[in-house]
Amino acid sequence: MTKSFDKTEWGLMVALPVLICLIFVLPAWVVNYVQVSLGTGLVALGVTIQMRAGLVSFGQGLFFCVGGYSAGLAGKFLGISDVFLLLVLGLVSGILISFVLGFLLRRYREIFFAMLSLAVSMILFGLLSSTEELGSTDGFNLPQATYFGWAPEGDTGKTMLYAVTCVVTVIWAIALNRILRSPLGYINEAIRENELRVEYLGTSARQAVHVTYVIAAAVSATGGVLWAMALGHVDPEMTNWTTSGQFVFVSILAGTGNIVAPLIGTFILEIVRVYAVEVSPNTWQMILGTLMLLTIVFLPKGLWSLMNTAKKKTGTVPAAEAVAGE
């Protein structure tokens, strides 16, 4: 019999209360970084699950932005401020747009997929930047979050939003971990290795890519809503290529070996960036670039590969887990 929860899922469930309690222990600025990291970490998760199929999305900012703007527009024009409703709206928007775009993108692989996803995200960037009603390049602010009619303010409001962010992130991480262990997860691994064989085993690679693309969009849009609610603001930079590049950066830095990796990787990147800016305000990008270079040279499968190396040394990686990359 298959166990109901694997180690990663147990780890996530144990980590959830710990993560929430951090707000009472850590300084506010660190908690802010954790919260923002969880939002963008979800987008990096979207990039990661596509990478498992060999697809590098240089336009994942599109769905990050779709999520954020869905929440923002609902707040601005419909007066909706309920976090759960905004999450649903962001999710549905992401799914609908990706479902339509998926019919085009599922036909492409490698650099063509990367460039096409980037092109689509830059179209949205252009549209939003030139729309004055939506604040043009400045964007606009979101309303204060409410919870089924309850509108906590001050520290209570911050704590609530942080807790919701943690819960939603963990739910998504567990769901995506399930997906990686499911037939779709294995089909994606196979597509990355040899798409011809996948077709000759009797399944549609394009269909699997399409489903994966929609799932990645859904999780990224959720991240966009949470990020926008945390900052209280959206702007077109969310879908700019530099933002999308950061998500790819995180996925490479963290590796695709485990669903937790991009979440940790995002936080590491945020912290490195903070200290890099402090140490070298004018050339902090060089520090990030060096980090990227070192990762690619010494850890081509990302930071998480250190865990796998340790597991292999102790001989604790069963075949199925090795395939799933756990």
Binding site: S182, P183, V198, V211
Partner: peptide, 28 residues
């Protein structure tokens, strides 16, 4: 699937061959 082991190749082949459509959430 050249980056994987022999057993992993067989496991993936069996997993794919037994599915009509991509299935979510159920361990393969």
């Amino acid at each position: 699937f050249p980056e994987m082991g022999v057993l992993d190749n067989m496991l993936i082949a069996l997993t794919i061959a037994k599915q009509q459509k991509p299935v979510l959430f159920r361990p393969a």
